[in-house]
Design a protein around this nucleic acid. Sequence first.
DNA 1: GAGTGGTCTAGACCACTGC
DNA 2: CAGTGGTCTAGACCACTCG
Lengths: 242, 242
Amino acid sequence: MVQESPTFSPLYRQIKGLILQALEAGEWRPGEAIPSETELAARFSVSQGTVRKAIDEMAADNLLLRRQGKGTFVASHSDPRAFFRFLRLVPLAGGIEPSTSVPLECWRAKAGQEAARTLGIKLGDPIIIVRRLLQFSSKPVVVDEIYLPGETFAGLSLDVLKDSHGSLYSLFESRFGVRMIRAEERIRAVAADRATAELLRVAEGSPLLSVERVSYTYGDKPVEWRRGLYSTADHCYYNDLG
Amino acid sequence: MVQESPTFSPLYRQIKGLILQALEAGEWRPGEAIPSETELAARFSVSQGTVRKAIDEMAADNLLLRRQGKGTFVASHSDPRAFFRFLRLVPLAGGIEPSTSVPLECWRAKAGQEAARTLGIKLGDPIIIVRRLLQFSSKPVVVDEIYLPGETFAGLSLDVLKDSHGSLYSLFESRFGVRMIRAEERIRAVAADRATAELLRVAEGSPLLSVERVSYTYGDKPVEWRRGLYSTADHCYYNDLG
DNA sequence: GAGTGGTCTAGACCACTGC
DNA sequence: CAGTGGTCTAGACCACTCG
């Protein structure tokens, strides 16, 4: 028999799409609870088990967070758990260290070829560039240079950055409504230039990690391109090959 | 009411434990199919749905591989998919490159403090050290120094390494019955020493990635400790922050 | 067509949270 | 205690693979 449905998509995936759509439309805010499984089942006229499977996948994708007895919540970058998902840096000595982000500069520019291609915008479109220092236990460890599409992050300035307290993604989420879902990192080893060396308090020419990251929001839309230079004198990039 | 089961474990997790046990005991070899869900359900006297959930988790853990219409298979390092799970190196230019492993040295030694602690063996226990070069498109990219517990890998020699064709883990799996389940990597930037620089054909002092890895087999038992030095002239370490 | 995994349902009951 | 997610079951049916 001819295969009649080459694009077969099970019901639970369609439900997942609908919930995703509601999430993207902002029907529920990050940190808030979404309706219970039974309510959603009624809303979409499917069984609770089907809703359950949809939510299961979204929880695995880190879009939702299940808490037994309480409900299902929209994942948020304000949650401390989200922090280490995007910053895979741990102290060599072990333990946990307090970190602070120190904004250095923030300026407007026009997208060059590489930035435009990476961010999926047009050549010459406005972009915002942020430079900031990341400290652990008050010692400088990372210098980041961050490229953002100007349209999406209109209103971002050095003052806004200085006034914010949580992580950068937490700010993006609450102030600009942009939720980072996923990111890709490409890591290389480079020699420290003079300016970076001074900031990180290492010798010029010291080996540093160059961590290039592209972050995506809903619909796999790229919304951030950044390059971090990591001093690995007292820290290392940790990766779990599950 | 007093909580009577503080160590509550759902049935499907117990089933998972039983299947894991059978897997560990070698009841089915890597690449082979395990019994169908209905057979396992009968064997353990539970419903098919419960077995299904156990297998779901094990598939998510990369221990099993489901193939619709065919069966469920024991994951194997001979599977090309497993290769990139443990070597997160991609060409800067994109595309796929043929890789070859060139064994350089293989000798016996006694475990020092660090090796003993990392591998969970006693100080002075026999270990095997392997040095090898990894090439992509016939160009040297990685130098690995690999520490293995001598007991587990008795019989390993330079000749054995030279005779093997697939990946190292594929050899460990088929010849020594050791399956790597999971690994942790810690990445730093270092300067190339003279010997390494020559091997990788870069200048002495060039920045390299130092990738330290501990690999675990069943029961989270560490069975490999390695340090790789990666030249990132034409390649980078790729990481997906899902 | 037989056998496998994959989906969907409906219902019962359990574990956890908070009032 | 009511409400939430979590488990377990049994059965029907679908999609895929292979002989």
